[in-house]
Amino acid sequence: MVYVIASVPLVFFILFFISYLQDPRKLINGLWFNSFLLTFLFFCAFFYIYIDGPYQYFLLVIPLLFLIILIPFGLLAFLAGLFYNAKVLMQKEGKRFRNSLTLIMALGILTLIVMNIINPSRFFPDYLSPLFGGAGLVVIYVFLHMFNFLTAYSLNQWNRPKKNQDYIIVLGSGLINDQVPPLLASRINRAVEFYNQQKKETAPPKIIFSGGQGPDEGIPEAKAMQAYAVEKGIPIEDTMMEDKSVSTYENMVFSKRIMDKRSGEGAYRSIFATNNFHLFRAGMYARKAGLDSQGIGSKTAFYYWPNAMVREYIAIVVMRHRRHVMVVGCIMGFSLFLTMIFYFFS
């Protein structure tokens, strides 16, 4: 029996290990790794109960008490952190909608906690219980999906591209008054840093600056990025421009065309440079575009991280919105079906 239960986390770990080696940019890596952790904890609990000894229950009670104390206090600390981060972010970056995502998330979680305490289902007829149950399952689905995303994102951060690249794609993020703003400058600086590191060991890569011209920009973003890099000491002959793209996906697609034309399809090694919070989603777009490219990330101010992570998660949900609409639709559709049965036969 012990061996059967022990084999479950082992299977999940093998699935994760194989999937991560194949491609660290997969969202499913988070699911496999979290499944491994959960089943491994279950195995540990079973092992403590299964073995015969004077301390078996004592060893089991300690982590259970820790979780009982950690979950409520950890949730309160998390909420306080979100509210504080929203305050700091809006003070530093301005009171704009895109800077209020952590505030919205905190208010949403607080609302769910209050709703759970009040239990509004008790004010409605019993036959509506399946609808409230379905809504609860949707909330659980969202939180599990978000947790899998955070795990896959964190695991992807450990990936380090080798310094044998032929190309570095620098992803654009917009100009301000036709000048490279700090966010975009950090991406270029990261590419310049990698360029100089590789140059010490082998032939330097070509840097492709990818970004088109926005409606409020006087020049293509790629041109301003190239000029900035040349000022940083990059020889202009080691730079290339892709000045048609207007999205991250187009950054990847159009840059791939340039590399394919210059070196032949699949006959080169490439990476992309962006901000570290953007690495995972950019990697998914690179995979979608057919690029076997990993990312290198520039550092981001700590106060900017939580809001950026919420934005990244929303963007990834939108990328695969059909799948999520289908799951939520099935849950709520089945809940509605049960509600109708309870209404007509109660």
Rank of each mutant, 00 (worst) to 15 (best):
K200Q: 12
I316E: 14
L279F: 09
M340G: 06
P204L: 07
I331N: 05
S298L: 05
I296K: 01
S270L: 05
E265V: 13
V328E: 01
K200F: 03
I314F: 12
M332F: 01
I208T: 08
T339G: 15
F337S: 09
T339D: 12
R269W: 09
K288Y: 08
E231L: 03
E237Q: 11
V246W: 10
V317T: 13
A222E: 01
I314A: 13
W305D: 00
N251W: 06
E217Y: 13
A308P: 11
R269E: 14
Y249G: 00
L338M: 10
S293Y: 04
K206V: 04
G233D: 02
M309W: 10
A301G: 07
R257D: 15
V318F: 15
K223V: 09
A222Y: 08
A222C: 10
K223Q: 11
G266Q: 08
W305R: 06
E217S: 06
V325I: 13
E312N: 07
I341S: 13
N251V: 10
S263Q: 15
F254L: 14
I219E: 04
Q226W: 04
A286M: 08
S335H: 01
T202V: 10
A222V: 09
M241K: 14
M309A: 11
Y268Q: 13
H278T: 12
F209A: 11
G295T: 11
D292E: 09
I258T: 05
I341F: 11
L336F: 08
V318W: 13
